[in-house]
Amino acid sequence: MNEKAIRFPLPNSEILKTLKAGDLVKLFGTIYTARDQAHKRLLKLLEEGKPLPFGIKNSAIYYCGPTPAREDGLFGSAGPTTSSRMDELTLPLLKAGLKAAIGKGGRHEKILRAFQEYGAVYFTTFGGAGAYLAKKIKSQKLIAFPDLGAEAIYELEVEDFPVIAAGNA
């Protein structure tokens, strides 16, 4: 289990190719939250040929619905949600250039294969460690679908955010 550091958005996807399943990785930079309902809306935008609310090329999505922001403007708790619920909603995003998804639990084999085909990686992080993970988020900004509340899309700046590579790129 080697420890590596990766910054998003990626300059290119070369670095992902150095990862092996089981590698502990620390993430830095900008990632975007999106879970069930936000995925539905992103897919609809893609279908209609409309622009997405963030640059999806070389980006990472975090399956997360945080608790509300506290006085310091940061989330109190922000751990991962179950990734497999997004299985049927992931392929169009990979096609559009998504390079990583972060969540918890296993996924359908065909989705893991799709990650590989698109040179992307599925990372798991720690389900049940929301307070710990929230402290790795240094800033947050609501960027789309405010009516979805916790399920809206937030742009996060993360530092030292621990994940485990679930497959090879």
Binding site: T67, S77, F126
Partner: peptide, 16 residues
């Protein structure tokens, strides 16, 4: 995580 949650009154898990 459990220590941070208790000390800083952060939810143990975001899914409350």
């Amino acid at each position: 995580n459990s220590e941070i949650a208790f000390r800083e009154k952060r939810a143990l898990c975001q899914d409350t």
